[in-house]
Every structure is written in C-alpha cells, then in structure tokens.
Design a protein around this nucleic acid. Structure first.
Lengths: 289, 289
DNA sequence: GCCAGAATGAAATAATAATTCCAATGCTTC
DNA sequence: GAAGCATTGGAATTATTATTTCATTCTGGC
C-alpha cells in the first residue's frame, strides 16, 4: 500500500503528456487504454464525468481514477483540472495566433504559411466540388461501376496517388479491381483483358500523361465503359468517356491539391460497395429511387 | 408562482448572449449582476461549480439558478451546457453533420450523401490541422529534411498514396528521394543504403503496417533521422522518431480521409524545396529568420 | 502447473454539488 | 405609511458524481 514516490506531478498539459508518453511501455493494459483515449480525446476528459468518460473509453470508472493516481494526482478531479486548464489556455492562444497570422504577413514564418496555403487550397477545392458536382452523373457512374466485373483503374503521375487509394479502398470493399501500372511495362497485356463487361475509371489532369490518354482511347474503342475524372470539357478524356466528372482543384505554389479528387474517389468506391451489397441482398440494386 | 412564458430557450451561446442583452434592463439587481459576470467570464461558468461561481460573482448559488431559469433553462446545469458547448463548438458542427450523413441507411439519394460525407470529413480534417499543428515541429522537420542527401519515403497500404504523391512532388522540385516499396521485395537493400546523412519520412496510421514499423525501427537504430506522420502519441512511430506530427483525420463510412495528411506532405515537400533553393542561393539555408 | 502479486470489474460508500424551500428584506403602489 | 408582491439570502434536501472496497481474473516467476 505504500506509495511509489512518483515525485513530480504534471502541472500543465504538456508535462502530463510527456509523463504519459515516457511510461507508456510500462502501463497496464487498461490504464494504457485510457491513457491513449485521454491523449486522443482531451476535450472529453475536460468536460465529461468520470462515468461518461469511462463508458466511452471502454473501461471502468475506477480504472480512470487509478490512471490519475498513476500519474501522481490524488484523484480524477485534479487530473481533470489539467485538461480544463489546457482548454482555457488554448482558447486564448488560438485567438492570438489568428491575429498574428493576419498581421505578420510575408517575411517570417514561411513554412507555416506554406501549410496554410495548402490547407486553404484544399478547402477551396472541396467547396467548389460541393457546389458544382452533378448528382446525376455520380449516380450513373456508380451504377456503371457497380455492374462491372472488374474495375480497371488508370492514372499516372500526379493522379497516381488517387489510383492507389482507389485500389486500396475497392480492395477493402471486396470489389474486384486492377490498376494499370506502367512500371513493369505490362500495360498492353492488362488492357487486353478488359471487356465491355468491365469498366475503366481513368483520372487525368492537364498536362495529360500521353500514355494514359492512349490507353483510355484504346479501351473506349474496344467498348469498355469509361468513367473519367478530369479537369475540363476540353480534356481528351471528356470526348471518349461514357461519363465524366469535371473537377477543379485549387493550387498553391504550383502544386494542385488532390483533396476533392480524393473525396470523389472515395465516394465512388464506397458508393459502388454499397450498390453491390444492396444488389446481393435484394436481388437488384437500389438504383436512384 | 405562475410562470412567465419565456418560450424559446437559447440553444447556442450567441442566442444566449443576445437573450441576456435584450432583457438586461428589466433584470433584478442580483440577476443582472450575475448576467454581467457570465458574459465577462464565460470560461468560469463553463468549468466552475454553482457554488464557486456564486462566490466569485458575489451572489448566492440560488441566484445563479434563478438566473438560469429566467433565461428559460430548467437549472444551472443546462445553462452550463451552453457555455461548455461553446468551447467545443469548433468541432461539433462537423460531428453533427457527419452523424446525419451516415452511410447505408438512406435508400434514396445515397450517393450524394456519401460524397457529402467525405467532403465534410475532409473539411473537418483540414480545420483540425490548422488549429493543432505545431509550427515549431514543422520548421524543424523541414530543416532536417532539407539537410538530407536523400529523403527516403516509407508508407504502405492506406498511407501509400501519400508516399507516391510525395515522391512525385519532391521529384518535380528536384529533391533526391527514394520510395521504399515492398512489391519487388527489395526493401532490405534499399534500406541498407540509408545513412545518418539522409532522412526518412515515414507515414503510418493505426493499424500500423508491421513492415513499416519494422523498417522504421531499423532505420532509427542505424541513426538515420526519422520524421513521422502518424495519428497518435501512442503510435510506435512516435517513440523512435526524431520529430513527429500528430494528424487526426476524420473518417466517414469507415474510411479515413487523407486530406490533411496530403496537405501537410505537400507543405513539407515545398518547404524543403524552398529551403534548398535558399541554401543554394545564399550559401546557407534560411533557417528560422 | 502452481503460487504470489498485480490488475481489473462491479458495486457500495462517501463526497460534492445542484436544487428547493422558507424566512427575511426591499420595492412599489394605493 | 402600510400592504402586497417580487427579490434575495441562507440553510436543508436531493441528486449526482467521485472514490473506495472487495472479490475475481489475469500474469509472470519458480
């Protein structure tokens, strides 16, 4: 029952965080569980009651108190005090930071400015998409993709990350898919497997990778349904795609974001997954309703 | 004893404030006193107990309750709820929205709803990052990466798209970099090339790909500076990284977005590009300025 | 495989805090 | 200037919440 001399109790949130991290290896399972929860959901700790926090962290209230005592506090209440103090402090410092951000412009803090630039560009892209994306095209595209035996994904260079994410998401949703990669030089074979019963999702932005355009054209000519994500009605893809989305990504420092393309891709993937599930369950897909 | 039909109770802090101001003339003295105190010290109301607030406002606890009832609440506790909501408000509007957008339930208009969900989740992620990302860590990470001879990029599965985008961006900026891919099984060789003069940028989120963790550990042990992007202080990466970013991506329908991770990655890439250019131009890099 | 010792879960208990009640005071109006 | 009503103060009551206790389940060492 004698206390281990825990010595210094954390006086502010940063110290507390450091203290948790330093002993994380040696914490018992449930204590570690609530420690992780606490660092991930500090607001909950600040506002909740011992019981409510315990429930949402999946432990007993008593564990919460043991956690507090492990850290040198004498109970949950004083631990909570640190989380509350942080919230008040952060609130004031947040306002300050916004002000200094507006005032102090060009010279210093260049890196943070770059990040802000990308964050702003991403937000802008998302806003544009939520205003302009055509709902009907979305429904039809998902319908086409949901009927496909295999979904081929075609995207290179700047769009390649989107393709790889799509492949990942579709894989997790157990939708058969195949990326067309150029590395191994096997594209021609891969493409020759595609039939009109499949579908291709092609993503390309100006300047369009020539290989992508060529592959897409070939597939379209062979009657494979083609869904495109591209940036303009003048895109070559727009001319031979069955359906196409126009996505305007904002840019910063010469780099366009992928925020809205990613969001659209995820929506397509999940939409296809849903349609497939509905189709299996009910004998036919929900469609537009 | 008959109730004045106060009708609408303020649902958020702004309404409450307006309500107080509009009837301030007609309030009894002590009620007015606590009303003024509440508007001047909202944080006290949010965190304090009825007794403690009463003391520091110079009134009786019962007065505090009468004040709450005057405004249409049924007690101090629900009044306090509004003051607390105000402090967490920053995220809650998104939470609410995401909850109403749940995947799969709505038979109709499901697809547009899915897209909305991902757009909202992306926006939320971006907002959280602009509030929480530590500026100092960003500066130091860019500094480390800018000094590296080669930047190794390590990310698998869900994070792989980020890695491929980073490789693309760094390549365009003419920063030497190397992705560590697992496909060809050449990872061990690749990793063995890295020296303390290089740097590794590793990206992994829970559930952490075991191969990523192993590789990262090996590199760290060999003295290669390691910059990590991960999702929690409890990530294994946080323990052996020289510097690490905590990124909380919102999720929708079981898929987390990559919006803020992408934005951060782009900022790192461009930041490194800038630092390199400055370094070449002036004989040494800009540093903090 | 068994035996400490620690860790955990569940419920009882203690502490604390919100709310109510009633007496006392202050205002307003006739 | 007194009666009636609203307001206030202070303490009693009730509700809620933190904490403690104890039985049970793990875990690691021999």
């Amino acid at each position: 029952m004698s206390e281990t001399a825990v010595a210094e109790l954390p006086r502010d949130f940063d110290e507390l965080r450091a203290s948790i991290l330093s002993q994380r290896e040696s914490l018992p399972k449930r204590i570690a569980q609530i420690a992780a929860y606490a660092l991930d959901n500090p607001d909950e700790i600040a506002f909740g009651t011992a019981a409510s926090i315990a429930i949402s962290a999946g432990v007993q209230p008593s564990t919460l108190i043991r956690f507090a005592q492990h850290l040198g506090f004498d109970g949950f209440t004083s631990l909570q005090g640190v989380f509350r103090a942080r919230l008040r402090e952060r609130n004031s410092s947040y306002e300050e930071r916004l002000n200094t951000l507006r005032v102090g412009d060009g010279t210093a803090a260049g890196n943070h400015r770059i990040l802000d630039g990308f964050l702003t560009a991403s937000r802008k892209s998302l806003d544009v998409m939520s205003r302009t994306l055509d709902e009907d095209t979305l429904d039809r595209a998902i319908d086409v993709l949901a009927r496909a035996e295999t979904i081929y994904i075609l995207a290179r260079r700047r769009s390649y990350p989107v393709a790889s994410y799509l492949a990942y998401a579709l894989g997790k949703l157990e939708v058969r898919n195949q990326m067309i990669e150029s590395a191994a030089g096997l594209d021609p074979e891969m493409i020759s497997f595609a039939t009109p019963k499949d579908a291709v999702l092609v993503i390309s932005f100006s300047p369009y990778a020539p290989a992508t355009i060529e592959d897409a054209r070939g597939l379209a000519e062979r009657g494979v349904p083609l869904i495109a994500i591209t940036d303009s009605a003048f895109s070559p893809l727009a001319s031979f795609a069955k359906l196409w989305f126009e996505v305007a990504e904002a840019d910063f420092g010469g780099f366009r974001t992928l925020a809205s393309t990613m969001a659209l891709s995820m929506a397509l993937a999940v939409g296809v997954g849903e349609a497939r599930r509905a189709g299996r369950g009910k004998g036919r897909r929900g469609g537009q309703a």
